[in-house]
Design a protein around this nucleic acid. Structure first.
Length: 584
DNA sequence: AAATGCACGTA
DNA sequence: CGTACGTGCATTTT
């Protein structure tokens, strides 16, 4: 773990000096105050249930310093890396702090999730019209634990944050978003802090063995590729590949990109069918192996001394309300290929735990579509208990579910999923390898049976054009100025985004609520099992000895009741010694 | 050193 | 001509 330093800046500068002198191990940064529901923006309130401490940040006195020192004395160590962690650092110790700039950052995000940049400087510029330093200044102030001259800048941050309070509060009220912030996002932030602090266990021996294997795969594939080509090139350079493929080997040209011709996997597969040149096979093998190798290496490097990976969940990044994950990204660990799944085998329960559990929503976006569209056919499809795509295919083709061929089922499956992100008949035909006419008639047949879905989708876009934004079930908005663009491509892209945002966003609302429910229920029942990861429609939990059965029931119950839709929410649960084994 | 483009992993 | 992301590498720009 990193060395701990204490840091209080801004209006608490007096405290900072005192605590530095006392060489206190806790890192803590407070720059300003934002309380959407209560006032007292100048007061720092620490409370752990047994006692609370109020400090007037505008007039720190020695008595305040004494009280805070006493208060902090028993707390466990934390470190601060950004606004969220500032907030987490306090909440993670069972304290409540009503008034840090993290709240302002989240409030700014809720007010306009389509815009990026939620530092105090960004927010002040946007909402107060105050041009401060270029972006990044505010974070640097927080991060610069040893910095000189930070006090003055920090005072500005604090003052700006306080000035933001009424503006952002008003904005949240105006957009009916205060509840979304206070009842969902701020509580979820605490859950995320717990998950990040917990991290996920890594089997380092397994990972290193995997790395060795992949290394040799990379080496062999590269050597074979060079032999097939007759000389060495940088296989990772699209530019050099283009020379080799389209000039030396004189292969047919692929789809154009801005800088030449694509060399992506799909195009290479096609070239292989046309030319059967062995170089292409080795190149694809090299691509695959080097990608996996690089990913394993990243995981190895980011595993901390405690043998665990502590990802960071970003809460103010996506336009739809989903989380994202960085350092490393734990939401794109391979799951589809057999080879890729081996990476999931590296994630294991840590000491004091006996298993990992995955719990994922089954077809949550289609269920949300059924609910939002009120399409009786789709609602019945889910109520029937029949396999969804088989059932839908049977209706579309007017046959018995038992007569549906596997191709019919897969085509309908692609069509259904495509609806949620505005897939065109052109795109559908390309994806399924059928003609545009066939794709168009499939779409027509589909909407003949599921007219409610079509009406819903066109209605979403129409409403978004009128209002300027879409909305999720929890009231999360996405603004789409592109809907009125003069540019055809821009407008079309905005329409697809408008189709997708309420569906993807509502799924995000639901799983966030589920995370709160699950965590609360685990705590309530005194269980030691805990949530480690969220992957959009899936939770990964670490299971304490003897708790598997109880937790399985609890998780399923809490996730299924996170929202009340006109179709049932179904949750699949898997248990295993590794993340791979816990998948199902 | 920073920005851009391509490729590719996830839901 | 398919929504939402993050990361790494090569290459280009500053």
């Amino acid at each position: 773990m990193e060395a701990k330093q204490l840091h209080l800046d801004g209006l608490a500068g007096g405290l900072e000096k005192w605590l530095q002198a006392a060489n206190h191990p806790l890192a803590l940064a407070v720059t300003g105050c934002f309380t959407p529901s209560m006032g007292d923006a100048d007061t720092l309130i620490l409370s752990d249930g047994a006692q609370s401490l109020n400090i007037d940040l505008t007039s720190i006195c020695p008595a305040d310093e004494q009280a805070l020192a006493q208060y902090l004395a028993g707390s466990q160590e934390k470190y601060v890396t950004d606004y969220k962690s500032t907030w987490h650092a306090l909440h993670g110790r069972g304290l409540e702090l009503n008034s840090v700039s993290f709240d302002a950052a989240l409030a700014g995000y809720i007010a306009r999730p389509d815009q990026r940049g939620y530092s105090v400087a960004d927010l002040s510029q946007r909402w107060l019209g105050i041009d401060q330093e270029p972006t990044g200044q505010a974070e640097q102030t927080l991060l610069d634990l040893d910095g000189l001259g930070q006090e003055e800048a920090s005072v500005d941050d604090a003052a700006l944050t306080r000035a933001l309070v009424p503006v952002l509060t008003g904005q949240l009220e105006k957009t009916d978003s205060l509840q979304l912030l206070s009842q969902l996002e701020l509580p979820v932030s605490l859950t995320l802090a717990h998950m990040e602090n917990a991290g996920i266990g890594v089997d380092m021996d397994y990972l290193e063995q995997l790395l060795g294997e992949l290394d040799s795969r990379v080496t062999h594939a590269a050597q074979n590729a060079y032999d097939a080509l007759g000389h060495t090139i940088n296989l990772s350079s699209p530019k050099q590949l283009q020379v080799a493929l389209f000039e030396e080997l004189d292969m047919p040209k692929t789809r154009k990109t801005k800088t030449g011709y694509t060399t992506n996997a799909e195009a290479l597969e096609e070239l292989y069918l046309k030319t059967a040149h062995p170089f292409l096979g080795y190149l694809l093998e090299h691509r695959d192996a080097i990608k996996l190798r690089q990913m394993v290496e990243t995981l190895r490097k980011t595993t901390r001394d405690d043998g665990r990976i502590h990802t960071v969940f970003q809460q103010t990044v996506t336009t739809t309300g989903r989380l994202s994950s960085t350092e490393p990204n734990m939401q794109n660990i391979p799951a589809r290929s057999e080879e890729g799944m081996r990476i999931r085998g590296a994630f294991v329960p840590g000491e004091g735990y006996e298993a990992l559990m995955t719990a994922d929503y089954s077809q949550i976006e289609m269920r949300i579509m059924a609910h939002l569209s009120k399409d009786q056919g789709l609602i019945d499809a889910f109520a029937s208990g029949e396999d969804l795509h088989r059932y839908v295919a049977a209706l579309v083709h007017g046959i018995d579910p038992a007569e549906v061929t596997s191709q019919q089922r897969s085509h309908i499956k692609a069509m259904s999923y495509g609806l949620a992100y505005g897939l065109s008949t052109f795109g559908l035909s390309r994806q399924l390898g059928i003609s545009r006419e066939e794709a168009a008639s499939l779409r027509k047949a589909y909407f003949a049976r599921f007219g409610g879905v079509q009406e819903y989708l066109t209605g979403v876009v129409k409403q978004a054009r009128t209002l300027g934004y879409t909305q999720t079930m929890a009231g999360r908005r996405r603004y789409l100025p592109g809907l009125n663009s003069d540019n055809y491509a821009t407008r079309e892209a905005a329409e697809r985004a408008a189709l997708n945002a309420p569906i993807q966003g509502t799924a995000a609302d639901i799983i966030k609520q589920a995370m709160l429910n699950v965590e609360a229920a685990l705590r309530e029942q005194g269980l030691a099992s805990r949530i480690l990861l969220q992957v959009h429609d899936e939770l990964v939990l670490e299971i304490a000895p003897g708790e598997a059965e109880t937790v399985q029931q609890l998780v399923r119950q809490q996730m299924e009741s996170a929202a009340s839709l006109s179709v049932k929410l179904e949750v699949g649960v898997g248990l295993g010694k590794t993340w791979r084994d816990a998948a199902h």
